[in-house]
Design a protein around this nucleic acid. Structure first.
Lengths: 113, 113
DNA sequence: AATAGTTGTTACCTATAGGTAAGTAGTTAC
DNA sequence: GTAACTACTTACCTATAGGTAACAACTATT
């Protein structure tokens, strides 16, 4: 295996890591929603109009496990829960920007034509 | 719906576009493989060690439809086919770099600990 | 005539992602 | 005591992504 191959194999590994975090229909929408401010369960659900409570709960848990978001429970009545981006979650900003940038470019080049 | 919501909804749409192109187990590996030079079917298969010919063929077609790669047939014997990145495919470079960068960061922060 | 080297294809199966609908639990207001 | 608001959970189903193994078509070599 030459130098080129080694570099290539490393890239393949690391992209898999990133993709495992952002893969799926709802993770990026949830993260983007939280870049606009901390939100409660119901607020996120109202913003991402067609997500079900099951999927929202499931994906919030996955993002918490990966330390992208954090969950804060308030003992108010009724109970409220606030979700926010961790520093690691905030560090996705440039990645998200690139996903958005390329999406705009792609739409101009292919989808729009 | 206020200004903030409008911006948010647009971002959600555009990220869906990008994700539809790169989603799946094999698309990014194939694209990365081609950033290291044009390759034939068999070469890609040998580089991405555990991909099956079925999946490779299927994903190459999808990437061609989205104008990320192009396919060139050579009438040699036996027939050879060369795959290469289109300009649109090459325009994914900064996006791929960010996916790799963030993956490295994530691995340091979470996977490694 | 048989074998090997190209680039795929086809049929079949399994695992997982995601959707639907209903229910749970605690508190407050009427 | 009943309805309403919070944040979920649970059971069940379907659609799709991906895997496996065998085959196909063409040509060159032996």
């Amino acid at each position: 295996m030459n130098q080129k191959d080694t570099v290539c194999q490393k890239r393949l590994m690391v992209t898999r890591d990133t993709m495992e975090v952002i893969q799926g229909k709802w993770r990026i929408p949830i993260i983007i929603s939280l870049t606009f401010g901390n939100k409660r369960f119901g607020e996120i659900q109202r913003e991402i109009v067609d997500i079900s409570p099951k999927m929202l709960s499931q994906e919030l848990k996955a993002l918490e496990i990966n330390k992208i978001i954090s969950r804060k429970l308030y003992d108010s009545m009724p109970v409220t829960v606030e979700y926010s981006l961790t520093p690691l979650g905030q560090s996705m900003n440039t990645l998200l920007d690139e996903i958005i940038n390329w999406g705009v470019h792609f739409r101009k080049e292919v989808v729009g034509k």
